[in-house]
Write a protein that binds this DNA or RNA. Structure first.
Length: 417
RNA sequence: GUGGAUGUAGCUCAGUUGGUUAGAGCGCCAGGUUGUGGCCCUGGAGGCCGGGGGUUCAAGUCCCCUCAUUCACCCCA
């Protein structure tokens, strides 16, 4: 195949069978959203570059190395959306949603773009769903969002292992950061190359290094540095979810890579996904609206990868089987053509031959994609009757045309059970 | 961006130490008496062996480059 015509690296074509699973998951997400009162929001696929650079943080990998950015013919700097939260925050500010009765609950489902090296569960274009809860600084807001995540995962058949941490606030994080830096300076010789870089750029991230486990384990725990307010917040969130039977585990090394997080952060992993095991991740981001031109508004939320969730879900999110009817033309004429539209008038998914096939070939085709075959044409047709056959059990009958839709529906219903 | 593995039919894969017209299974199409699928039988279509260059009398097989896929690092959904 000429590589000129291959899809771009890290993108995917989703064929009908998989598209049906995606569609099914999408309905599931919106049903959970409805259950908790989250309204859908859609934002553009691209934004002015500053929305992500300032919103997500210009030190983060997704804005530093992974941006799909371009300047349009009018000279405007634009970027394909790499994540949803900053874009929603921009829309929240732009449309004055801070004037809406609080809290404001929003969810989205949208394609995201990051120029990374593709691997299992990681694509340059992928889809994310996300939930955003604006307006409440209370621990109950963090807890609700965690409960939404749990319900969603349970609906797709997973039992989530939720990892939680608090990365503190402006009061306590600087102290922790300083303690970490001096700890790493003492062990500089034990750090891997990547960690030395990280130790200066973003010391918190050395914690989840995969090589220097020992160094990370011996590092000071942020829990010992939390201010009273952060500690109380974290304790309350943990208590609230535990109250609802959601077991969460505090993971001291959990830090997340986006700059807007504040206090609560959490992730859900699934080991079946390999190295890219994060099914969903999120946290609190009270300062984000201020980064995109608004007043600060407290907010919490999370986002999850559609492809990863589908991989982890396996057959739990299966394609909906659609029981179909197939109308075969017997002999010459257009009987099948007419019966087809008749069945569709009644809302029954129906196919009719378009290949000028023999009856045998039509039957074969029906066997592949239908449950009930209607045989239209010939002498019965002249007498106002058609033949019926159910492929699943071989049942056959003849019916007057006037009763046809009723009979087909009954046969399909019986098959369903 | 770094490292490893892999690219042969629509799909899953054989293809010997380089040696004639590159194979199988599944799938697809047609037929096995005029109007009844699945099973079975017969036949058929479908491959610049990812692309380019090189070594050789000879390359799907060996070498180099490139593209893609994949796994891991990095990072994250």
């Amino acid at each position: 195949m000429d590589e000129k015509w291959q899809r771009p690296r890290g993108t995917q074509d989703i064929l009908p069978a998989d598209a049906a699973r995606v569609e099914r998951l999408r309905r599931l997400v919106s049903s959970v959203a409805a259950l908790y009162g989250y309204g859908a929001i859609e934002t553009p696929v691209f934004e002015q570059t500053a929305v992500f650079v300032d919103g997500v943080g210009d030190g983060t990998d997704i804005v530093q190395h992974e941006r799909y950015s371009f300047v349009d013919s009018g000279g405007v700097a634009l970027t394909l959306r790499p994540e949803g939260t900053a874009a929603v925050a921009r829309a929240y500010v732009e449309h004055g949603l801070s004037a809406w009765p609080k809290p404001v609950r929003l969810y989205y489902w949208a394609p995201m773009f990051r120029r990374e090296r593709p691997q299992k569960g990681r694509y340059r274009q992928h889809q994310q769903y996300g939930f955003e809860l604006y307006g409440s600084p209370e621990p109950s807001a963090d807890a609700e969002v965690l409960l939404v995540a749990r319900r969603l995962l349970e609906r797709v058949g997973l039992t989530p292992q939720v990892l939680v941490n608090s990365i503190g606030c402006d009061v306590c994080r600087p102290g922790y950061r300083a303690a970490l830096v001096s700890y790493f300076q003492e062990r500089w010789a034990d750090l891997c190359e990547d960690c030395r870089r990280r130790a200066t750029e973003n010391p918190l991230r050395v914690l989840d290094c995969k090589q220097d486990r020992d160094v990370a384990r011996g590092a000071p725990d942020i829990a010992d540095f939390w201010c009273a307010a952060c500690r109380a917040h974290q304790d309350a969130v943990m208590a609230l979810v535990a109250d609802q039977g959601l077991a969460v585990v505090r993971e001291p090394s959990l830090v997340r890579g986006l700059d807007y997080y504040y206090r609560t952060v959490f992730e859900v992993h699934d080991p079946s996904l390999g190295a890219q095991s994060t099914v969903l991740g999120g946290g609190r981001y009270d300062g984000l609206t201020a980064r995109v031109g608004g007043a600060p508004v407290p907010a919490v939320g999370f986002a999850g990868g559609v492809e990863r969730l589908l991989m982890a879900a396996g057959s739990a999110v299966a394609e909906d089987p659609v029981p179909r009817a197939y109308v075969a033309q017997v002999g010459p004429g257009r009987a099948a053509w007419r019966v087809g539209e008749m069945l569709r008038d009644a809302g029954i998914p129906t196919e009719v031959d378009l290949m000028a096939r023999s009856l045998k070939a039509q039957m074969k085709e029906a066997g592949r994609r239908a449950v009930v075959v209607v045989l239209a044409g010939g002498q019965e047709w002249e007498a106002g009757r058609v033949g019926l056959k159910r492929l699943t059990d071989g049942r056959e009958a003849e019916a007057p045309l006037v009763d046809l839709t009723e009979t087909v529906r009954a046969w399909l219903d019986e098959h369903e059970r």
